[in-house]
Amino acid sequence: MTNLMTYFNAFWVGGIICVIGQILIDKTKMTPARILVLFVTMGVVLTLIGVYEPLVNLGGAGATVPITGFGYALAKGAQKAVQTYGLLGAFTGGVTATAGGIAAVILFGYLAAVAFNPKEK
């Protein structure tokens, strides 16, 4: 696969995942918080049944950057840890694999809140 092709795939795979979210917002009046929860849960479930992994191989960041990719990272981490540590891995694997993202969200979230003030629209 050419380098340019990976970017193109990331673009349309990511775009389509977002479009699914937009359809849900427009059609079902789901709030963004519900969309995020649904998507992260779907990411876990789709990974468990082996559907999401091929999508990641195809779309790269197009599949990992959407919040479904967070679910994918959680589920994949749990699976890997189960292989090594057994049942304990189900508990430690998901959070371990996503620790970087979670810590970043908390740190940068806090720093941004301290540094900036909300602006009127």
Binding site: A10, F11, G15, A61, G62, V65
Partner: peptide, 16 residues
């Protein structure tokens, strides 16, 4: 949603 969402993912692809 398609174009902006896709564009953000391309940024992610560049970083990775």
């Amino acid at each position: 949603a398609f174009f902006i969402g896709g564009a953000i993912c391309v940024v992610g692809q560049l970083i990775s």
